[in-house]
Design a protein around this nucleic acid. Structure first.
Lengths: 343, 343
DNA sequence: TTGTACGCGTTATCAT
DNA sequence: ATGATAACGCGTACAA
């Protein structure tokens, strides 16, 4: 900017005023303005965001903390976040939080918070006391997406109505004649709610729910395979499985294929999330569609929008909840032996 | 830092020296050092990275420009990049480059380059003249991963030996008795090389390659479905398909399932990349494994490591090439009608 | 061993 | 309508 000022024969502050479009009045003469602009573009002047930030301006950087980007669901969430952020002029900084059991997760280790105007948590970090404490004492705004339920939330959260999703999935299965319905999930974040919803649904419907029908495994395709193996060993194998995520559902379907169990003819499987590949599996996946775009949009609004929330003593942080929607595809069918069944 | 200095009764520069571990000599007395450190941690002092960066220090930010994070392959690449970057103390800034046909892609639009110490391009951006020009004139180091071939490369690139991968896939199919082998891909980046490798392999092997056997479609599961539909309409349908990516392969397998074509009994399919879900599909996917971690590590080294490369006149930018590896799983089998076949 | 002073590139305030 | 100047937080050459 100094170069521009020197070349134009004006002071540097004048250049600043011109290039920032004089917030106050049009107190720059037309000719100097034109001259400075010409020279600036000729010299290829580019504002220096770091210097601006030092003056107190925003960084236009949005921090995203996520455990595992490989998880197809969170990959889709990051994509949505990136799009939403870009529309508001923000860029996303990835704070990769690989949970290493031996080290407490410190915020600084994962993200230099002062770079970012706000931080978005993707997934459940309630187990990371250290991280949450850091976040609480940091000056940046924090929003948690799919962060699970909590009593005294230190920051706003946005999520989905897990109970409604599980209810819809189970309604669908029950209406297809299923009575022996198992659940597979990892006891983390939203899946905790899904598990609880599954249990209370079965109880309310008066359905049998043997202990072995709820399998808690890692949220991976391998975890799904292990869960299926265990379920097939039950005295009465289930005719349908509700999976806590599509990843688990894919693992279950894959394992069923390897074992010669036909989906959906012999076993129905319902997933949760509707990840991008869910419609391209064999068979295509019946699943509960997560309104990712809406959730991310609400989260970004809370993080960097005008409707932002700042901690107060007299009220809890807000929790926004969106509704999921059941998508029926090819992985569910009537229970074997029913009207349309074989035998 | 001023607060710390005031509280400790020393000057701000002393504090700076202590907290930066005096690069020169141990010219700080033990007691003042201890006192300052105590006060600093008590006050919860955190260095201000922006001010540091303004002084010329590095931002420890690594820009990543990617077209489509939803693409499972690039999601995995981003994951690897994030891990590799974190090991060197860097964070990744996502520059989301959704190709909108109507607007030329400007670097500033996608990433405020002066924030980043270096920029990593993920995928093929040769079509984006504007972006590449911006990159060339920018002062940051740039590295292209999976950027395809180019004559006068303005920056170093790291990639995979596509020809070797395709050769391995075709060798496998030919050895399984296949003669009618089709190719499905999008004419972008590395897939261009894969297509060329497919054609020259068939020519060298003296295999029939009807025009309609090479299907150029979008790199999505839907694209794969369209390609399969077109291939099944050929006078002589192929017995095997080489897909340019696993995404396409999954689309092909899904479409085959929907049409009642059995994979691998009636049709063999080979993918490329070995995305995380490739081993959990039905059937599991035979594919060419991309050495993502190695490629990303080499890229980060070129971008921010000591072995970095700066443009010179007398030599081309380096191109590092890694070798892929064929992973045989369940989506390929002997050609129908062969020794082990039915009928 | 420690304090003073300057500059990094901006923006904002005050004076001209 | 424009120029001079202070300040943002930090690192460092120089002076004490």
């Amino acid at each position: 900017m100094n170069d521009v000022a020197a070349a134009a024969g004006v002071s540097q502050s004048t250049v600043s005023r011109i290039l920032n479009d004089a917030p106050a009045r049009i107190d720059v003469s037309r000719d100097t303005r034109a001259r400075v602009q010409a020279i600036a573009s000729e010299l290829g002047y580019r504002p220096h965001p770091i210097a601006r930030a030092l003056r107190g301006a925003r960084t236009m950087l949005l921090g995203a903390v996520v455990r595992d980007i490989t998880d197809p669901f969170f990959a889709a969430a990051i994509e949505a976040l990136s799009i939403e952020a870009k529309e508001r002029g923000y860029s996303v900084v990835l704070g990769h939080a690989r949970a290493k059991a031996d080290e407490a997760l410190a915020l600084t280790a994962v993200l230099e918070e002062r770079h970012c105007d706000a931080i978005v948590l993707l997934g459940d970090f309630r187990g990371e006391r250290r991280l949450v404490d850091d976040l609480r004492s940091a000056q940046v705004r924090v929003v948690g997406l799919w962060h699970g339920l909590e009593q005294g939330r230190p920051f706003p959260t946005v999520g989905v109505d897990n109970r409604a999703g599980i209810d819809a999935a189970l309604d669908h299965l029950v209406q297809s004649g299923h009575r022996r319905i198992a659940y597979v999930g990892e006891e983390v974040g939203d899946m905790h709610e899904r598990h609880a919803a599954y249990r209370s649904y079965l109880a309310a419907a008066g359905l049998d729910a043997p202990r072995g029908y709820a399998r808690l495994v890692a949220n991976t395709t391998d975890g799904g395979g292990l869960a299926l193996a265990a379920l097939l060993e039950q005295p009465q194998a289930p005719t349908a499985i509700v999976a806590g995520t599509d990843t688990l559902a894919m693992g279950i379907i894959h394992a069923a294929y390897e074992r010669g169990v036909s989906v959906p003819a012999e076993l129905s499987v319902v997933g949760f999330d509707d990840i991008p590949l869910a419609s391209a599996t064999v068979p295509s996946l019946t699943t509960v569609k997560m309104p990712i775009a809406e959730i991310v949009a609400a989260g970004v609004e809370l993080a960097v929008g005008e409707g932002g929330w700042s901690p107060r003593q007299d009220e809890d942080a807000p929790r926004v909840v969106f509704q999921p929607k059941l998508i029926v595809r090819g992985s569910t069918a009537a229970v074997p032996g029913s009207a349309a069944g074989s035998v």
